[in-house]
């Protein structure tokens, strides 16, 4: 990113080359990064190869990059699970889709409200939200409250609701919203748009990039979440993938 040619026409290209790192240094850096890249990829490759190698060959050679025999047995076994597999994937997909949508919906609205400096309870709600970042009940108290008081034990909603509001994402989105000048909102109000209309027709479309970022993070955390499932789900029929 340093010193692109077009940004400084005054200084000749000769000077630019001076500020670049030398070829040997570049080679060393490349070497380091290549090794790290391999370290990132190879273990994954191993898992994939192991999944395709036959049980016999694992028995003989252990887990290896070069199995003596290939087979699809693991996948055959996997798909034989049939019903259970379909149901598990179904629940995971349901949790991810519904969770992400619901989470985005409430996070976006909450962040917008907090970004409005003319909103009366702005400070109160911000403090309330920030406090949840600093202090929380921990898993035991949360678990007891959710199962005993809210009746969420062994239900899909236990996988969706607790994760749906993340104070950190609200803060990120709020910063995004602050980039929208208040004049736009005021103009919309003068033109007769209600608060809801202003939000859904003007503010949301302007914030698509922010929403996409947050949406992606939320989706990944829902998809990868196994902890809540392990904690709350007892009935095997509701097991996740």
């Amino acid at each position: 990113m340093l010193l692109k040619k077009k940004t400084i026409p005054e200084i000749g290209s000769e000077d630019l080359k001076i500020n670049r790192i030398s070829k040997p240094v570049d080679a060393i850096l490349n070497l380091i990064f290549s090794i790290w890249s391999l370290a990132c990829i190879l273990p994954l490759l191993l898992v994939v190869i192991v999944s395709f190698s036959s049980e016999q060959s694992i028995f003989q050679n252990g887990y290896s990059f070069f199995p003596s025999e290939w087979s699809l047995d693991a996948y055959r076994f996997f798909f034989k699970l049939g019903d259970q597999l379909v149901r598990s994937y179904g629940i995971t997909i349901f949790v991810t889709v519904v969770g992400t949508l619901f989470s985005l919906f409430i996070t976006a609205m909450f962040a917008y409200v907090l970004s409005r400096s003319d909103y009366a309870y702005n400070r109160l709600f911000t403090v309330l939200m920030l406090f949840t970042m600093l202090f929380n009940g921990g898993i035991v108290a949360t678990y007891m409250v959710n199962t005993q008081m809210l009746g969420l034990g062994d239900s899909v909603w236990a996988l969706i609701l607790p994760m749906s509001l993340n104070a950190f994402y609200v803060i990120i989105l709020r910063t995004f919203y602050k980039g929208i000048p208040l004049e736009i909102i005021e103009a919309a109000r003068i033109d007769g748009a209600s608060e809801f209309k202003t939000f859904f027709r003007i503010v949301l479309p302007l914030e698509k990039p922010g929403l996409a970022t947050i949406g992606m993070f939320t989706m990944i955390s829902y998809w990868n979440d196994w902890f809540l499932g392990m904690l709350y789900i007892v009935d095997q029929k509701k097991y996740l993938v």
Binding site: G137, N146, L150, L165
Partner: peptide, 19 residues
């Protein structure tokens, strides 16, 4: 607009604190 988030926050953040 803030209400849904507030309800979720109360139920899943503040109630456990009482817990």
């Amino acid at each position: 607009m803030a209400l849904p988030a507030l309800v979720v926050m109360f139920l899943f953040r503040y109630l456990p604190m009482a817990g």
